[in-house]
Structure formats: structure tokens, C-alpha cells
Amino acid sequence: MSPVVNNLLNVVLILVCVVFGAALLTWLERRLLGIWQDRYGPNRVGPFGTLQIVADMIKLLMKQDWVPPFADRLIFIVAPAFAMFVVVAAFAVIPMAPGVGVVDLNIGLLFFLAMTSLGVYAVMFGAYASDNKYAMLGGLRAAAQMVSYEVFMGLSLMGVVMLAGTFNLRELVLAQADGWFIGPQIVGFFIFFMAGIAESHRTPFDLPEAEHELTAGFHTEYSGMKFAMFFIGEYVSVLMSAAMITVLFFGGWLGPAWLPPLGWFLLKTMTLVLLMILIRGSLPRPRYDQLMTFGWKFMLPLALINLLITSALILI
């Protein structure tokens, strides 16, 4: 196989798998929450309800493609596409196994951080273009939350970077051959995990779309496929956070030989995804100002101290 065909195959397969995986995740989450909450969850369409996603997709595609007359039409349409674009683009740098991955950038980690930072624009565009008060409140919350959580999201990863001495994600994985970074960087993991949940607006960080306060927050006015783009985009970003944690803290595809490398990668990622779903099922939602206080007054100092101690240890 020529490298071009190989690359193309990689790109297409990963894109399809990621989007389909995110769609499947919607079913998985509903099903798991159902089981944990003493009820069934979707179990009617197809075996164990797995075809529920097909039914949902048909429903969303059939809906009227509605743009509210008071909305800013262009931005309103671009926002969900942009939301989808940034998370999928961020996926490009994630190395899943030797030879599996879209692109191998030597600044892969920085590219990932850049892309997730852009995510906030999608939310703000959507909220602004909707011209809806609930959306505006949601957009304001999202902007404040994402900007502040990005600060220590980046900082929490610097410990890993220092230990491995590279921004290249593939080399980061290989650097963990002797031991996963979860050991020395347990604090960094904790912080990044929280920030990852916050980036994908999931409970307890779902304030931008807090259903009980802001109806649907920034995507109140969205429906049909445009809504689906935001919705699936969030699930892709869940997958992405989990994949990123796997790569950075759990040794990526590394593991005993009884599973193929890709198998290890998927297993670790899915375990983390399950953890995120479990968190959603168990925690309530803090108040907006409490969340910001927690971020700036607790997480940020913690990330800095972690960085300080790591660098001190490396110097010694």
C-alpha cells in the first residue's frame, strides 16, 4: 500500500469511527444510566436497543431545518458545524496505535490545546446568533467556564511534558514504556480529568446548558441536525478527553501482548468514558460562581504546585 492510500484510509476510518462511536455513546450512556438508576433505558429498537441511534438519527434528519427569523442566520448555521469541526480536528493528533492515527505532529499536544480552546467560539457564536436570553446566559457561562478551565488544563499537562521532554504525542506514549505517567502525575491527571469534563459541558460542569435553569442553555433555539451537531460534538469531545487521558497518563496503546495495541487503547478509553458517565449519574451541579471559585482558587494553585514539585524533582 502506498503511504497516500494508507493515510487516506486512516483518515476516513478514524473519522467514521469517531462520529459513529460518539453516536453509539449516546445509546451507551442512556443504557448505562438506566441500569444504574434501576430502569431499562432504550431497549426497544434492535438488539438491546442498539439501533436506537439509527432511530434518533432518522428523527433528527427528518426535522424541519429551522432557523428562527430573529437569529443571525449565517453565524447560526456556522456555529454547530464549527463545534463539530474543532473536536474532530483535535482528534487528528491522537495516536491510537503504532501506525493508526491521522497525523503525527511534533507539537501534537499544543495543537490539541489550541483546538479545544477554539471550542468556546462555537458555543459563543451559537448563543449570540440565537438572540435568546437563555442562550445568552448559557453562552456567557460557557465562555467564562471554558476560558478559566483551559488555563489549568494546559498547566496540568506540563508535568507530563516535562517528564517526557516532548510535545509529540506518539513519543509521549513511548516515554511511558517504563511506567505510566498516572503514577508521578496523579495530581495532573486529576486536574486534566476535571477540565476535560468541563470542556465537554458534562455534569457537574454542565452549567452552559443547565437544563433546570436555562432550559437548554446556548442551544435552546437549535433543532434537527444543527442541534445534533452540538450534541454529537459533545460526545466526540467526551471520547477525545478520554482518549487524551489514555495517551497522556495511561500509556496509550501500551500493555501486555494478549490484546493488540489498538485493543488496549480502546479498552482504556472506554473505561474512562464509563467513569465520566458514572459521574454524570451521581453528582449534582454546583452554582456558577462556586464553579469559578473552585477553578481559580483551588484547581489553578493545585496545577501550579504540581508543576513546581515536578520540575523540582526533575532538577534533583
Partner: peptide, 16 residues
């Protein structure tokens, strides 16, 4: 009450 504060599970146990 729990649900409005964002905790989604208790209401399901309570419904049982």
C-alpha cells in the same frame, strides 16, 4: 429537589 439541583439519579430510586 435533587433533580433541580442537577442530581439526576435520586428521583429514579424514589420512583421505585
Amino acid at each position: 429537589f435533587a433533580q433541580d439541583i442537577g442530581q439526576m439519579s435520586p428521583i429514579f430510586y424514589i420512583f421505585a
